[in-house]
Simulated assay, not measured.
Amino acid sequence: MRNPAQGIHHITVMASHPQRNIDFYTQVLGQRMVKVTVNFDDPGTYHLYYGDRVGTPGTIMTFFPWYGAKRGQRGNGEAVATGYTIRPQSLPYWTERLQNLSIPFTTSTRFGETVLTLEDPDGMLLEIIASSKASPVEHWENGPIEAENALQGFHGVTLWVGNLKSSQVLLETHLGMVYVGSEADPEGTRHRFEAVSGGVGSHVDVVERPGKGKGRSGAGTIHHVAMRTVSDDEQQEYMHALFAKGYGVTRVQDRQYFHSIYFRDLSGVLFEIATDAPGFAVDEPETELGKHLKLPEWYEPRRTDIENHVRKITSPEYGITIGNRE
């Protein structure tokens, strides 16, 4: 019998400008860039990974930055917001930090917790949520934010759907999450589900918006939400169980740092189930994470062409210069 999903493994988003993306997530949010590689299905563009010091599952935000991509539109059938956790005592720090950086934000309360809502450079909704349930992560000591105020990985993700039913069946019955409750939301009714692990990245909120328009893919939209599983064997169990229930689940994909299967809920949201292993130190030491363009072995013969094609990205503070195209 497979275990329930352990929460969120990573969230993958589309962006338009790799350098602007790097500056925001490393310098504003204080995340470490833990891996620079390419989109395995389109090696002409980067795949950037951010997280805590070692890229712990539940802290990992990844981006496909297609240079010049048009902005997408939030709507039903997709994940629309990513929430990070902070300790409650860090709320004044983040309020002041966003104000000093001239980043607009709003403040609200949700399920008894204070939420700061802002947008990244491409318009994706980000939430910084003060929670007494904050789980400690591996602090990136070379980043711009001290340990006591650093982001503590994901709080969760918000989905927009036209009807709750299919999402509830998926989350409760097939992924083993627990229904927490509901409350009014400016967009409709928000329903919260929680992974039984209760750790980092354990929440999925589903906002039911009957009759509202569908989302349109583009820069600033979430491509998929990846849930965690503990082993390859358990992932196989998920694959067969989901297939038996009519989900169009893919075969296992080797993503170098984890193994993945993908499927789409009837609501339209694209999900992945990813393994924790082998992790980001499989092809470079922890001290060097994110400093080099790492390619899977099947793209290594094309390294020169790829480096000449991808846009130049730099992070002088951490000694990173990758790509040759201005």
Rank of each mutant, 00 (worst) to 15 (best):
G30Y: 09
Q31H: 13
Q31Y: 12
R32D: 05
M33Q: 05
M33E: 01
M33D: 05
V34R: 05
V34Y: 07
V34W: 04
V36P: 02
T37Y: 05
D41S: 04
G44Y: 02
G44E: 01
Y50V: 04
G51N: 04
D52S: 05
R53G: 14
P57S: 02
I60P: 10
I60A: 11
F63T: 01
Y67T: 10
G68Y: 03
A69V: 06
A69W: 06
G72D: 00
G75S: 07
E78C: 11
A79P: 10
V80Q: 06
V80Y: 02
T82D: 12
G83A: 11
I86H: 07
R87C: 12
P88K: 02
L91E: 10
P92K: 01
T95C: 14
E96K: 14
L98R: 03
N100Q: 11
S102P: 14
P104K: 01
T106C: 10
T106G: 10
R110S: 10
L118A: 02
M124L: 14
L126Y: 07
E127Y: 13
S131P: 08
S132P: 14
S132R: 14
K133N: 15
A134K: 08
S135F: 14
P136G: 07
E138S: 15
E138C: 12
W140M: 15
W140V: 09
